[in-house]
Design a protein around this nucleic acid. Structure first.
Lengths: 191, 191
DNA sequence: TGACTGCCGTTTCGAGTCGATACTAAAGGA
DNA sequence: TCCTTTAGTATCGACTCGAAACGGCAGTCA
């Protein structure tokens, strides 16, 4: 494709971004607030801190602190100091927060995607993944992949749990292996 | 793909949206301000008004008015009343605005896309276009396509110009036919 | 046992977005 | 001429964002 067409494709990405933002905005919470809720719902225990959230959002700790505070005031999130290291905090969704997530405006997209042919869904996902990964990498940012795709992910049984994290040295449940991890390093190369 | 995977694809869209926003943010202007500059650069004369911009952004006229004001104060945009209808305004990029657009942070995406195989570029573009169009349509919003893809676009010669708009009844240059039009209605069906 | 260092989170500041609402002014029909 | 519709502006409160200053705390090195 020539440069002009590639710009048109980028223009579509821009519009998608805007649609995402306005969808979010018109449903009560700010776009970032929704993203925080989604992240907390999908991240594993070690990754539910302000620092991890800051890296995930590509924002600053100040902004994140404020956003968390706003969500706390609405009773959607709790913010407690960690017992191991009292500099850190532990963020969690409240029951209200979890319930609100069922009305996530982002859910219109899976439905739209579902209308596409199966192979097109697959290919679209792969291309998106490539673009996001490349972009994050060129900014020196983490990809925040799923636990089970990590190079430290082990299938050894331990303590009755089916999996094991070789980095943090903890046993992992099946559910945990599908969560987002702050420390995740892709097992497959980034060629 | 199963629902969980479709959600993962939507998650990638979400992250792209965020990358777009932070890229924009960290380069001086707010994301929306960049979008306004890009729109004004690519829209035809009839479409460079606050009303068209409001529809394009899916925002409100109040917000657009403020955004335009901020860009005016920076000397990137001019805002003049229209002579035909003095309620309307005519927005234009200043020379400074046009120059700034050369540093558009969005330009990293065409480069990233260019790294993909040709067929993958094509397919990705088509899928994106489908998603955006469907989403806009389901919200009852306009698509803002290119003049030459419009059902009112005619290839008749007139006044020395190669094309013609059957809706506004004006001759069109080659360049104008590639601009975004407020009135555009897709020539191909929306099945 | 200290002091030094680096990290983590909070607070505050100014510019800007956003939706909502109220407002002004111009166009255009009855 | 009156009245309605339409286009753009002004203002308010909640929120985002980056930057910078601040305080708490863990780990290290002396």
């Amino acid at each position: 494709m020539n440069p002009k067409d590639l710009q048109a494709t980028a223009g579509l990405l821009e519009r998608i971004g805007r649609l995402l933002a306005t969808d979010a905005h018109s449903s009560g919470l700010a776009p970032v607030q929704w993203e925080v809720l989604r992240y907390l719902d999908r991240a594993n225990e070690f990754s539910r801190s302000s620092a991890a959230l800051t890296a995930y959002l590509g924002s600053t700790k100040g902004t994140v602190s404020q956003t968390v505070k706003a969500l706390e005031q609405r009773g959607l999130v709790t913010n407690l100091p960690s017992k191991q290291d009292r500099r850190r905090n532990r963020l969690s969704l409240t029951a209200t927060g979890k319930k609100l997530l069922l009305d996530d405006p982002m859910m219109v997209w899976p439905r739209a995607l579902n209308a596409l042919p199966e192979t097109e869904q697959q290919r679209f996902h792969e291309t998106l993944e490539k673009l996001v990964r490349d972009r994050l990498q060129s900014q020196g940012r983490q990809a925040f992949g799923m636990c089970r795709d990590c190079k430290y992910f082990g299938r050894e049984h331990e303590n009755g749990q089916p999996h094991y994290c070789k980095l943090l040295e903890v046993p992992l449940s099946d559910a945990a292996s599908e969560q987002i991890c702050f420390e995740q390093v892709a097992a497959y190369g980034q060629e």
